[in-house]
């Protein structure tokens, strides 16, 4: 039964078209990266590895991206839940609020953030009188990166929550589970795949973000310079070193994803 279905499918010409298209996509995604690695000037590697720019930026990038993802989870999960539980019109409106920052050029996001939290902006001024500085430091970087990456997390999680079988929550409630227990033992485990996808998306977006960070928070080695900013700055004079930095950033990301793979992307069954 199954075998005939498979073989008849493999005979259809459409299958080759699909395979060819998929292969093109894989090449399109990997060739530029291989090119980057191919251009690597290995003599530079040792020098870059020992540079303080790399160490400072890598550590800051990790802290900032983890901070941004943590904030996304903390504030994004309740929003995702709310969106998934609203009537269609409210849901559409809330989704729009989440999508707009995604389509804004990151530089514009940075300007927008400045208009709220900048030193001369209303909220920023209040915070400054309270002695709280939210720009030109790590906090500013986290704010900028969260603004850009949180929507990815919210949309992914919201999609998961919306597709969750709500009757499972009903069943838990009839078994005496409080709303909190239902959330903890049904809603969240049931959206685990979506939450993991959201985490990965948000983190990927966070680690690569530079437009909003540069505009909102600035670029200063050791204080606000994340990896993408370090790469951009290095690129001004030293393409080889910038190339090495890019490959190192890529390598660090792959390493982290591989380490988390079992936990993050394993079959959620």
């Amino acid at each position: 039964m199954t075998r005939t279905a498979t073989s008849s499918r493999s005979r259809s010409p459409g299958r080759y078209v699909v395979l060819a298209a998929a292969l093109c996509t894989v090449l399109f995604l990997t060739l530029p990266l291989l090119g980057l690695i191919g251009q690597l000037n290995w003599a530079e590697l040792g020098r870059v590895l020992g540079s303080s720019v790399l160490h400072d930026a890598l550590i800051l990038s990790l802290l900032v991206s983890i901070g941004a993802v943590a904030l996304s989870v903390l504030f994004g999960t309740p929003l995702a839940w709310l969106i998934s539980r609203r009537a269609r019109r409210t849901r559409g409106l809330l989704r729009l609020v989440v999508i707009i920052p995604m389509v804004m050029p990151p530089v514009v996001s940075g300007i927008a953030l400045l208009s709220m939290l900048g030193r001369r902006a209303p909220l920023g001024r209040v915070l400054e009188t309270l002695g709280i500085e939210v720009t030109s430091n790590i906090a500013g970087a986290i704010i900028a990166v969260t603004f850009v990456s949180l929507p990815f997390y919210v949309l992914a999680v919201e999609a998961g929550l919306t597709s969750l079988d709500r009757r499972l929550e009903d069943a838990a409630a009839t078994l005496g589970a409080s709303p909190m227990r239902t959330l903890r033992t049904v809603t969240l485990p049931g959206s685990r795949g979506a939450i993991m996808a959201g985490l990965a998306l948000a983190w990927a977006r966070a680690i690569g973000e530079f437009g909003a960070t540069m505009t909102f928070n600035g670029n200063l080695q050791g204080r606000t310079q994340t990896m993408p900013l370090a790469i951009l700055q290095t690129m001004q004079t030293d393409l080889d070193a910038a190339n090495v930095l890019s490959v190192l950033l890529m390598g660090a990301c792959v390493l982290i994803l591989v380490c988390l793979r079992g936990r993050l992307f394993g079959d959620v069954s």
Binding site: S136, N217, G218, N219, T224, Q233
Partner: peptide, 20 residues
Amino acid sequence: NLISEEIDALGVLGKVISGQ
């Protein structure tokens, strides 16, 4: 006293215009 090193003049202008 640096708060930021910009890649171009527009970056410097932006930081000053916004009061950062």
